[in-house]
Amino acid sequence: MMDEPIVIENLSKYYNHFLALDNLNLRVARNENIGLLGPNGAGKSTTLKILCGLIRSSSGTVYIDGIDVGKKPEQALSRIGAIVETPEFYQFLTPQETLRYLGRLRGMQGDELKSRIKEVIHLVGLDNWITVKIEKFSRGMKQRLALAQTLLHDPPILILDEPALGLDPRGVVEFREIIAGIGKEKTILFASHQLVEVAQICSEVAIIDHGKLLVYSNIAELEKKYESLENAYLELTGGVS
């Protein structure tokens, strides 16, 4: 097993002529929970999308558990659970059917799949909605279902892009508790604008801007140096004179 399940090497990404990622390097150690911070357009989502095989890099390589995502995406994806942006589900299926579909695509079946679906549905608080078509769901409920599908196959690596988006305050608190609970045994790369959220869930942060890594450090150390995580973020991203 690799000690660094997420490795990003010299990663660059152009959208036509716009440089979204500029030679980004990042290594995440096993069972670390890393917050990926940065202003809008910094390249956070682009990084996570490349890690999930949704888009291709212009140059550079990303590895999941030592597997090159660009070369063997299916193998790499079998190790991760991901929420990217605000995902949508097939409106005509229920959460139970959706999770059964995704679980079966991941090789799960029978009683194992059945009980695991119940478990994750209970974890995200959708017990009463398990057989209701998703077309009736609010944004927050879909986000809960997204978290359920992320955890369904109990992956060792979680890639989360603004996963609490659309959740009500209670949902946000519950979400943090879930992630904080499972995070001890998983490697998490977690992009967010919510510094409080990141500070509660993660031990380290990587701050990027204009596609470049500005700092990758322990939160406690940043707080010591800049007095608070907020100050560190603002100063590093040019928000404080």
Binding site: L54, E74, Q75, L77, S78, A82, P87, L102
Partner: peptide, 14 residues
């Protein structure tokens, strides 16, 4: 268009 791909494409299937 409807972003269902964000769920479907992150699964280990060609």
């Amino acid at each position: 268009e409807s972003k269902t791909g964000f769920i479907l494409f992150t699964n280990p299937v060609k």
